[in-house]
Structure formats: C-alpha cells, structure tokens
Design a protein around this nucleic acid. Structure first.
Lengths: 148, 148
DNA sequence: CTTTGATGTAACAGTAATGGTTACATCAGG
DNA sequence: CCTGATGTAACCATTACTGTTACATCAAAG
C-alpha cells in the first residue's frame, strides 16, 4: 500500500486550491501549498504536474506565476484525482514470479485472481466517484476548532 | 500497493489445499505448495503461519507432518483471507508528516480523508466477502487448457 | 533588456517494505 | 535414535517513496 500517500497529497492540494480561489487576489504557488501539506515544494510540483496532465489544473510560468483549477470543485471527483495520480499498478499485486503452470492451481490462479481484483478495483472506483473536491472542502471546513 | 502479494499467495495456498484435500492420501507440505506458487518454502510457511493464527488452517509437526484446512472451502471467504494476512496499514496512506494545523485545510484534511478511506476499505471488504475459496477453486479449474 | 520569482525536472540520499534465502532449533512418528 | 517437516531468526538484494539540492527555463514587471 499500499504504500504511497499520493492520493492523500493530491486531494489536499486540490482542496487547498478550491479554498484559495475564493480569494481572487491569492496566487496558488507550490511554495504556499507546501507549507500547508508540510512537505517540500518539489513534491507539490510533482503532484501538480500529474494533475495538470490529467487536465485538472493549469500552471502559469514567469513572474507572478502560479496554479489554478480548470473546473469547478463540484465537478472534480476523487476518482478523477485517483486516476490522475494513479500508479499503474493495481491495488493488489499478483505473484512476483509466475506460478507453476504444470499444477492445475498454478495454471488457473492468475486469471481467477485477476477477475477478483478487477471487481475490487471497480468497487473502489465506484466509491471514489461519489465524492467531489467540493464535498471535501465542505467536510474539511466543518472540522475546524470551536474557537470562533 | 500496491505493494505486496500476500493476499495473492494466501489465496493460492488455500485454493491449493482445497484441491489437495480431495485426495485423502495427499499430504500438504510447505515444500509441495511452494512448487506450485513458485517460491521458497519459508515464504509459504510464513503465510501459513498467519492463516493458522486466523484459525483457517492447522499444522502437524514431526515426521509425516503437514497442513490442512480447518473448515470447508465454502465457508472461507476472501475477506477471511484478507484479514488473516492483513497488514495493519490501510489501503491508502495519510500524510507521512502531519500537515500544518495553522491552515484550515491542513487542520481538517486528515479527519475528512479518514472518512473517505474508511468507506473505501468498507467497499473492498464487502466485495471480498462475496467470494469463497470454493468459488476460487471452481474458477481456477475452469481455466484449465482444452487438452483433455 | 534585465531582473525576478516561479515552474519544470533531473539527480541523489535515506528510509522502509518486500520477497527470497540460509541456517538451525524443535518436534513427533516410525 | 532418525527422519522429515514445522517454526523462526537473521540477513540480503531489490524496489519504491519521500524529501532534498541543484539548475535550466520561462514570462511578466520594471
């Protein structure tokens, strides 16, 4: 797991941008986002690069450069985000080295597992598609401390 | 995720044992299973150890030792298997170092993500619970080559 | 046209997890 | 006792990920 925190960072970034755009004067830079995520700006730029490839954000270079969303937060789902930062590798891995095909189980296990893992993947995607960045922003702001 | 192939190996092992038990004379040893999975017997024993802790299999030591299922394959689901070999770590990881709590997003993002990731985990478990080792055995045998 | 501040990206290091391997103690039946 | 398997510690190579430094590139501002 899986291993990485890319989806987590990507959702953080997009949610941050969704909040930030409420202030028209604000400029979203990798530096400012990195402070919120508490990591290195390069990590943020790597993430933003993937989000740009997926068409979710755009960048402007030169002086006064920065980033902005290309769509309304209501139209960006976590599935979009997941696909954008997606490792190509599936949630669950098959055998590292192929099993023996001279054994009935070894021969048939991989196709059978692929079907199961495909259903798992599908279930995850279905669930991811039910939440948008706008939903995230609302939930995140609802978590604020009681201090007015 | 990503990352490991433990579930894959565990399902392979259990399915193999489900087939093997049809021959009353057969003895399931880590050595024989390792040949089918195409890996080292110690890897199989590590896996079987986890399955035993979960109560899915039992081992006999001494001469002529081996392993056997404690339940009918129809009653062992992939969720049982998943929980048995379960890493404690969730499918999707949160931030490696906690985000800035002086930023509204940084403050609220983790609880919000935990909710989402919890729903994802739930979806995966629901799906895993729908398939049994008996189902796997049937599907695996259905994959056999056409040669009679 | 130069300065400035950001993007874009390569390169590298430290950490952690995984799968595989060797080695060896332990056990129980023959 | 002998034998063949389990049980488990220890170790290694590989891989992936995060963080970091460094630097080229770009475009607006002055």
């Amino acid at each position: 797991m899986s291993g990485n925190s890319r989806l987590c960072v990507a959702v953080h970034v997009l949610t941050w941008m969704a909040l930030d755009r409420r202030d028209p004067a604000a400029v979203a830079t990798s530096q400012r986002i990195a402070v919120s995520v508490n990591t290195n700006p390069v990590v943020i730029r790597r993430c933003l690069g993937q989000l740009r490839e997926a068409g979710l954000v755009q960048s402007r270079r030169g002086a006064g450069a920065g980033w902005h969303l290309t769509r309304e937060p209501e139209s960006i789902t976590l599935l979009d985000t997941y696909l954008a930062v997606g490792d190509d590798e599936p949630l669950f891995a098959l055998h590292t080295s192929p099993p023996s095909d001279s054994c009935p189980i070894g021969f048939g296990i991989q196709p059978a597992l692929r079907q199961v893992f495909g259903r798992l993947d599908e279930a995850v995607r279905r669930e991811l598609a039910t939440t948008t960045i706008a939903d995230m922003l609302r939930d995140v702001l609802a978590q604020q401390p009681a201090t007015a």
